[in-house]
Amino acid sequence: MTLALLVTLLTLTVLKATPIIFAALGGTISERSGVVNIGLEGMMAAGAFGAVYATSATGNPVVGVIAGILAGAFFGFVLGVAATRLKVDQIVAGTGINLLCIGGAAYALVVLFHQQGSSPQVASLGTADVWLIVLAFALAIALHAFLWLTPWGLRLRAIGENPRAVLAAGIDPLRVRMLAVTISGALAGLGGAFLSVGELNIYSDGMTAGRGFIALAAVIFGRWTPLGATLAALCFGFFEALQFILQGRVAWLPSDAMQALPYVAAVIALAGATGRVRAPESDGVPF
């Protein structure tokens, strides 16, 4: 392998991993607080669409990124309210949000841009998207430190394990969960915005292409820690990048097998997680 190829492989790995890292960090913080966020894929689509719409309206992709974060946060908030105050089942609400966001973006393309399928091209961050990549890794470290080194991180994790005990300590677990899920949505939205106005300059139907679900797999493969999820996302990014590069060079490698890899890895991680590391005790359990 030549040096140039190696450089391409590594940059592509990071590029492929970045949106997944954002969403996976969101998934981690949400699950640590005890809410499974199945809606990551939809929130990414909302972020991607919101970013393109705001960029098209203002001409400024930075405004677009902020709008993407807000769009994701809004649907995170909706899931948070549904899962905490309304006691709606998290999975049901998350599934609903996926349908809502992906269908909603397709519908909004018609209403706002008067065209189906994809948006017009808008301004993009261009090479400045590298700052978002840096941000992804910085956030991973910051979130890891937050969860394990600060008293608030400890409380968040405690809520995911045993919300009753935290309630006894005078903290409202529902409020913390709602906040965590909203942040989770914001991060997924940021991942979507990275795709649509960071790496690209367009929204098109189906552009998130399952990245939100891969992020969910990364959360598990990364054993519910921010650095673990980041490493898992990099892993998945690496295999996709490898597939891109090997394609056409290695005939025997079916691309379907490569595409299934993250999910197979997640299932194996689910099986292997017993005894050593496990999901937060109250993950997915309403309080």
Binding site: L86, K87, A93, L99, G103, Y107
Partner: peptide, 23 residues
Amino acid sequence: NIPKDAIHVIEGVIVVLLAARRY
């Protein structure tokens, strides 16, 4: 002139509303 995906928005809202109905 409604895209075929719009039906998903409606289904999504129904799912969330119905789940909330229990509450």
